[in-house]
Design a protein around this nucleic acid. Structure first.
Lengths: 230, 230
DNA sequence: CGGGCGATTGAATCGCATCAAGCTATGTGG
DNA sequence: CCACATAGCTTGATGCGATTCAATCGCCCG
C-alpha cells in the first residue's frame, strides 16, 4: 500500500536486465503488405539520416551497421535515446515531425519506407494499425526500462546491463564488437565517457569480461550478474 | 554530423520544459464509441489500483485526485514513471499484463473501462486503433522527455521543470497544491526526498516560488526559467 | 612512420546521498 | 481543549561516487 519501503542507494543492486537497448525487431510487420517494399540506402559513419524537427517522410529498417537517435539540449548535452541494430525499425515517431536526430554510428545500410504509405495502410486496415500500435508500445517499454536505469542505477549497473543487452542483440557468439564509441555509450547511459571507460576497466579487473582492443568484448555473464545483483 | 560537440555538465542549463509529468489528456478518445462508458470507482489514499504483473482487465481515467504508476527494484528502490491527474488515462500498457503498479496518491475518483472491449473495437475499426496508437505515442513522448531529464538534468533543473509541469496540468491559477509527497517527487525525479526538499527551499530562497505550507506553491515562472536557463 | 582520434588513467573537486536531528502540521485520546 | 503521537518536511554534517580537468597511451589509417 504505502510506498514507505522505497529505499534509495547508490550501491549495486539488481536492475533486472532491461530490454535490449532499443529492441524493435520488426518481426513480420510489413510482411503482409506486398506493396510496402523498402528502398535500400547507405549512410557513412556519423552521417545524419534525419534531423529533429524535420518532416517525417520515411521510416527505416537497419540492414547492417548501427544507428543512434538522440536529442540535444541547448547547452550541448546529448541524450541518446536508442541504438538501432540490424533488424530494428526506427524513425517511427508518430506525427508529422521527427522528434529525434538519427545518425549512422558506423557505415550503415538501411531500407527506407514511405511513412505516408504506411499510415494510409493503417487508416484502412485495423490490423496494420494494431501492429503499429504494438510497435510503439514496445518502444515505450524500452523507454520505461531505460528510465528506471537512468533514474536509479549506479554506473556499474548501467554499463553492465548495457553490455549484456547489446551482446544479446548482436547475437553474442562468445564475443562481439561494440559499434559505438565510449562517448555514445556515455550519452546513452547518462554518464561521462571517462566513467564508462573506468567502469569497463573495473568489470575487466573483476573478471566479468575480457577485452581484445577497446571495442571487442567477451562477457562472463554469470560473474557480471553476480556483480550487479549483490 | 559528428557528435563531438556533445558536452556534459552538472551545471544548470536549459532542459526545455518537458511535457507535463505524464500528460495523457484523453481528448475525445472514447467519445464516438457510445457503448464505451466508464464505471465510476473510488480509491483511498495509498490504495493500490492494480499491481505489476496482474492481468490488465481495466483501463482508467482520472476524475479527481491523483495516481502514481511505478516499478520497484529487487532492493526496494522505486521509480515512479508517471503521475496521472484529472483528465488523464492510465493503465493502458498494451499487452495482457500490467507493467506497473498503480496507487492513489490522494483519495481519487476514476472511471474504469474494460480493456477487452476497447481492444475489440480497435481490431474492428482502424480509426480506434489509430487513436490508441496515438495515445501510446504520446506516452512514449513523455517517457523520452523524462529520460532526458533523468539522464542529463541537475537536481535544480529536475525539480523546477517538475513543478512547472505539474502546475500547468493542474491549471495553475496563480498557485496550486502538490498532491504528492516529497518522497513521491524524489522517486519520480531520481533523487532523494532530502534533495527535493533542499532544492525547493533553494528555489524559494532565490525567489522562484512562494510557499504556503509544504504543499501549496506559487510559481514565479520567469525567475524559475532564468534559474535553469543560465 | 607519424598524425590523430579514441580510450585509458590519475588527481582534485563537486553534487547528491546518507545519516541524523529537529521542526511542523495534523489528528487522537484523555 | 490541550498533551501527545505521528507522518511529512526541513536542515545540518559528512562521505562517496561521478564529474572535471589533464596527461598519456595505443591503435588505425594515411
Amino acid at each position: 500500500m504505502a510506498p514507505d519501503t522505497a529505499r534509495q542507494s547508490t550501491r549495486p543492486a539488481h536492475l533486472g536486465i532491461p530490454s535490449p537497448a532499443a529492441g524493435l525487431h520488426a518481426g513480420g510487420l510489413f510482411a503482409n503488405c506486398p506493396d510496402l517494399i523498402g528502398s535500400p540506402s547507405v549512410f557513412a559513419r556519423d552521417e545524419e539520416i534525419f534531423g529533429e524537427g524535420e518532416e517525417a517522410e520515411f521510416v527505416y529498417k537497419v540492414v547492417s551497421g548501427a544507428v543512434r537517435t538522440y536529442k540535444i539540449l541547448s547547452d550541448g548535452r546529448r541524450q541518446i535515446t536508442g541504438f538501432h541494430l540490424p533488424g530494428d525499425l526506427f524513425g517511427f515517431d508518430p506525427g508529422e515531425i521527427h522528434r529525434h536526430t538519427a545518425e549512422a554510428v558506423s557505415d550503415t545500410k538501411v531500407l527506407t519506407f514511405k511513412r505516408r504509405q504506411i499510415e494510409r495502410a493503417a487508416t484502412q486496415k485495423a490490423e496494420v494499425a494494431c501492429q503499429l500500435w504494438d510497435l510503439t508500445a514496445r518502444t515505450l517499454r524500452h523507454a520505461q526500462d531505460h528510465m528506471l536505469m537512468l533514474g536509479r542505477g549506479s554506473a556499474l549497473e548501467r554499463v553492465a546491463a548495457f553490455l549484456m543487452a547489446v551482446g544479446e542483440r548482436l547475437g553474442d557468439a562468445g564475443s562481439f564488437d561494440l559499434p559505438m564509441t565510449r562517448r555514445d555509450i556515455a550519452d546513452y547511459l547518462g554518464l561521462t565517457l571517462e566513467t564508462v571507460s573506468r567502469t569497463i576497466s573495473q568489470l575487466e579487473g573483476e573478471g566479468a569480461l575480457l577485452r581484445a582492443g577497446a571495442r571487442q568484448v567477451t562477457l562472463r555473464r554469470t560473474r557480471m550478474r553476480r556483480l550487479i545483483d549483490a
